[in-house]
Amino acid sequence: MPLFTRTISKLLSPPCHYLLAMTAVLAFSGPLSASAQTLLRVNQTEHPLDAYAVGALRVALEYMEGDYQLDITQDPITQTRAIERLESDQMDVMWLSSNKQVEEQLLPVRFPLLKGLLGYRIFIINPESQSRFNRVESFSDLQELTFGQGAGWPDIEILQSNDLEVITTSKYDNLFYMVEGGRFDAFPRGVLEPWTELAARPDLPLAVEENLVLVYTLPFYLFVSPDKPELAQALHEGLDKALADGRFDQYFYGTDMIEDALTRSNLKSRQPFPLKNPSLSDQTPLDREGYWLRLEDL
């Protein structure tokens, strides 16, 4: 909407959802054959998810047939602009968190690059409120809390559809001042985000809540034009082969961004509250072995 350039702090909110894609782009030239060279032009901004996605693409290329070369440039663009470029055949691949709407518009490569980690949400709070969160034991207790979100974020629909109260603002930075001032109780953040966000705002007495985690399915996919199903298939097959070989998990768990998020969030010790995601496509590969992070495996 819901172990992310600014910095990891902007991974999910507008930062997150406006640039959950801080997109990278590929220019796909030529047929997918072993004999043809395919130039993959990738636009990598400073957003940490760009670097991660480019790395995942490199892993996929190791298992794809053909002669590929990455040409990496820097061109900051929004998710909306990236979609426009994809649809106008100015580029071939982008990435972002998925929902029904975008999957109807673009062609997804249904391999969750972050193993669903974007759907694990912990809270930024005023540390004086930690004792209140310590008393949360049931979902009804959770419903007594209020949650802050940026106007238009996809997470709003998820939280509200699970009967949680949401307070919104049009300005991302305001959310930190609002939770500090008690305008709402918690600011849910993806596990990749909160510590860097707090480090960027040392003047605010905020903390990461210690015990709870919201969990909902939120895939982070590669997307291509609906006119290029052969490219989507090649990417998907490459990623599947990398997963079967153990190479993808080696990359995922070995990435500093992921390792740091999993270590600092201590997800396995938190009380999980599963939420339904009404915007999730029916074609989401929920049962695919190895696709999703499971708390019991940490």
Rank of each mutant, 00 (worst) to 15 (best):
F220T: 00
R189V: 05
L198M: 00
V215W: 07
K241Q: 01
V213W: 11
E180L: 15
K228Q: 15
E237Y: 02
A232Y: 02
L192V: 13
T196Q: 15
L239A: 01
H236C: 05
D240T: 13
R201E: 01
L212D: 05
L198I: 02
T217I: 12
L175V: 06
A244Q: 13
L198C: 02
R183N: 08
E210N: 03
A186Y: 04
L204V: 03
P202F: 00
P188G: 01
A199H: 07
L214G: 05
A232P: 04
Y216G: 04
N174D: 12
A207H: 10
E237R: 09
F223Q: 06
V179S: 03
A207T: 03
G182L: 11
G181N: 15
R183M: 12
L239R: 08
L192C: 14
V215L: 09
L175N: 02
E237D: 00
L206A: 02
R201S: 08
L222F: 15
L218Y: 08
Y221Q: 02
P188W: 10
V213Q: 03
E209A: 13
E237L: 07
L204Y: 14
Y172E: 09
G181D: 11
A207C: 13
V179R: 09
L235F: 07
L175Y: 00
P202C: 07
P205Q: 11
G190F: 07
A199G: 14
V191S: 05
Y221M: 00
L243I: 04
P188R: 04
H236P: 13
Y177Q: 14
G190Y: 10
E230G: 05
A242M: 02
L206Y: 11
L231P: 00
L192I: 13
M178C: 05
S225H: 11
G238M: 01
N211K: 10
A199P: 09
L192F: 15
T217V: 15
T217P: 07
E193P: 06
V179G: 06
F184L: 12
A244P: 06
P205H: 14
A242S: 08
Q233C: 08
F187P: 14
L243Q: 02
L198G: 04
D203S: 12
D185W: 06
L218A: 10
T217Q: 14
P226H: 13
E230F: 15
P194T: 03
D203W: 06
V213S: 08
W195K: 14
N211T: 02
A234C: 01
L231K: 11
Y177A: 10
A232M: 09
F187N: 03
F187E: 00
